[in-house]
């Protein structure tokens, strides 16, 4: 309970901080629309040639793009900024300030930053999703909706765990910014359903970098493709990844020796 209160307080501070720079909102809106525009151009070029891609029709792929945009917004608003700050602090030794606070260190380093304006991506993603669902004539039942929301939450959790694992390697390797770069490149693969990729790449995008669970699985729920097995698989992977991430974080902390502080 106290953890929630702490997270909420940091959220509040993050929001107040962002309100100091309102002009950034307009830049964010423009960036979101440019990204969406180029994505839609890519989609329309494909559908100039074919009616479906790997069994996914136009409206289905629009739903995938909606989920991709929503998840991208969540990652950039709440996950990535925290992890980037953590990378810097491990390198510079200023993580001491967080570790001396009387709260769970993993929770603390995961909630300190929040970029409100990036949520424009989430809003626009929802709109895209609604348009896609409209084209699909709203054939979404209660179970599908529930499957979608739970899959979305699990997907976000998996991406968070992935980031935390990568960031924790900074305790040993120090320079990990390039890996962050790598993630951005790989996440872009989520714009398309993972079943169009060759096998080796599909497994990588499912288990190494959980892009498949973050984007394709929630979109499958809305387009009537999600099976109970996949959902249970997602649940199992979430729990596993969370345990691994927690373990690596703990071991990494023991490796941390601070710097000057």
């Amino acid at each position: 309970m106290q953890g929630f209160k702490l997270a909420f307080n940091y959220l509040r501070i993050g929001v107040m901080n962002e309100f100091q720079y309102r002009a950034n909102l307009y830049i964010q809106i423009l960036q979101t629309f440019i990204a969406l525009g180029t994505g839609l151009i890519g989609l329309s070029l494909v559908f100039d040639q074919v009616d479906q891609l790997g069994g996914w029709g136009k409206a289905d792929l629009l739903a995938v793009m909606g989920v991709f945009t929503i998840m991208g917004g969540v990652i950039r608003a709440a996950i990535q900024p925290n992890m980037e700050r953590l990378m810097d602090e491990i390198r510079e030794g200023t993580l001491d300030y967080a570790l001396t606070k009387p709260a769970d260190s993993q929770l603390l380093v995961s909630v300190r930053e929040f970029r409100l304006w990036t949520l424009v991506d989430v809003v626009v993603g929802v709109v895209v999703l609604i348009i896609a669902l409209n084209q699909l004539n709203w054939l979404v039942g209660g179970w599908s909706a529930l499957g979608f929301f739970t899959a979305l939450v699990m997907g976000a959790l998996m991406i968070y765990c992935f980031w935390l694992i990568i960031t924790s390697t900074a305790f040993w390797f120090v320079r990990v910014h390039e890996i962050a770069n790598l993630f951005e490149g790989l996440y872009a693969a989520g714009r398309w359903p993972v079943n169009i990729y060759p096998n080796w790449l599909r497994y990588g995008l499912t288990f190494l970098v959980p892009v498949a669970f973050a984007v394709t699985v929630p979109a499958s729920a809305l387009t009537g493709r999600l099976t109970l097995q996949t959902w249970l698989g997602a649940l199992a992977l979430t729990v596993t990844l969370f345990t691994i991430a927690r373990f690596i974080w703990k071991v990494g902390l023991r490796n941390y020796s601070g710097a000057s502080a």
Binding site: G42, V46, L53, E178, N181, L182, E184, G185, L186, A188, A189, R191, W192, I196, Y197, P198, L201
Partner: peptide
């Protein structure tokens, strides 16, 4: 840095 840049063309290529 280079591998991060590979993701983009590989996606286009596959699609």
């Amino acid at each position: 840095y280079m591998i991060g840049m590979l993701a983009e063309p590989v996606i286009y290529m596959v699609v």
